[in-house]
Amino acid sequence: MTLSKKDFLGLRNINCHEINEILETAKLMKYTLVKNNKKTSYLQGKTIVTLFYENSTRTRLSFELASKYMSASVANVSASSSSVAKGESLMDTGRTIERMGVDVIIIRHPLSGAAHLLARNVNVSVINAGDGMNEHPTQALLDMFTMCEKKGGIQGLQVAIIGDILHSRVARSNIWGLTTMGAKVRVAGPSTLMPPGLEDIGVQVFSNVEDAIRDADVVMALRLQKERQESSLLPSIREYSKVYGLNKERIALARKDVLIMHPGPINRGVELTSHIADCVNSTINEQVTNGVAVRMALLYLITRRRQNSNALYS
């Protein structure tokens, strides 16, 4: 069990075998998460750095705990409190971290392609924890893991993603991952927040949110950033929630056993009503637990790869 590439940057260029590998491994990791003693020695002697250029609570904590449950040493670097604030370039920061005996750098960055830039310039493994509007692959992995758990598989599922697709790295990673795994992806949202050409990558685009939700197995709401209204992409948050928000009536159009997902943090009353967020079909809290499991799996697999390649050098 291992991954073919040094880095884990996105789901666009990953095949279904590797995704399956991670999801299968995550299943095992989830057992340890619910155990009384969570400490395992899978990553003993490994050092992991989270390099975050954007604020994050759940993703960072999730990676940090995943590392700790497997006995890795983990350190966190934030852009605001490091030499990044003094104007150091991403490449220089990356090379500095690399020289401290680090095995994996986990990067979150507001610009698309930043993780790729770092990966090209360091020899250690790089994991993308979200780059601009491009990808957030571990989020999609945890979403797929949750779907697998609840639905027994991904193949053939009808998944509706609702909201700001244009700016969403969660949507992109899910589109790549889900289509690779044989699910059907539908999207709906304001046309001002819909990027061009989605049909060409096998996504069904609906102008009407009801049509996208009808008979769906999974409905995923995306977080709406308040800035979208300020930059005129939307007339108002109010109208957004009225036209695109998930509520009881809309969810009733989906399959009875529909999963309601959200990458978090949620805006109650905007993307979805509290009723929907807290209903039995909602997996929002479960997704968080699964996030730790898939990140443990990914770290485990990627460091095993490093072990093998390091052996070649010595």
Binding site: D131, M133, N134, R169, P196, G197, L198, D200, I201
Partner: peptide
Amino acid sequence: NEGIISTMLGLKG
């Protein structure tokens, strides 16, 4: 350029 590639790369078009 705004188009399928900007969509795929998550870059503003």
